[in-house]
Amino acid sequence: MINLVMQKALLPVLDLSEFPNTVIDVFVELTQTDAGTRCAGINAAALALADAGLAMKDLVSSISVGKVGDKVVVDLSKEEEDFEGGSTDIPVAFMPRTNKLTLLQLDGNVKKDELKQALEMAKKACQTIQQIQVKALKEKYGESK
């Protein structure tokens, strides 16, 4: 299932009309996992697609937010996901320029207000992640100054 949501998270930024009748394979390897794996995978895949030179409308930045106990948090760790006092995991992905969601899942129990708060926090977190992604790409392509 993870690969399906990851694919759907990335599709909206791609313009596949340049390559009719073809398949773009994206292989993601998780060398070490500690919660937030599909989010890390999406961030990496977005970078890889840009690195491959494919035409994209935007990058995709992803993070998981959620509720641990009664606090709304960003980037849940494994312990927080498994917290006995109750945990809600909400993986999201944004197209950073337009702030549109391409991944949204929820596992747990939250009120609408808490969800709204979580999504705003996710939006901000994804802006930060996008800056890191941009920096990584520009460094690779020689903006060394």
Partner: peptide, 24 residues
């Protein structure tokens, strides 16, 4: 006007293009 690929900006009068640094 937005870049769709990773590359170098090239401004020629009113035309803006991005010369791809990667890709098949």
């Amino acid at each position: 006007i937005i870049a769709s690929q990773i590359g170098l900006v090239n401004i020629n009068g009113r035309l803006i293009k991005v010369i791809a640094l990667s890709g098949r």
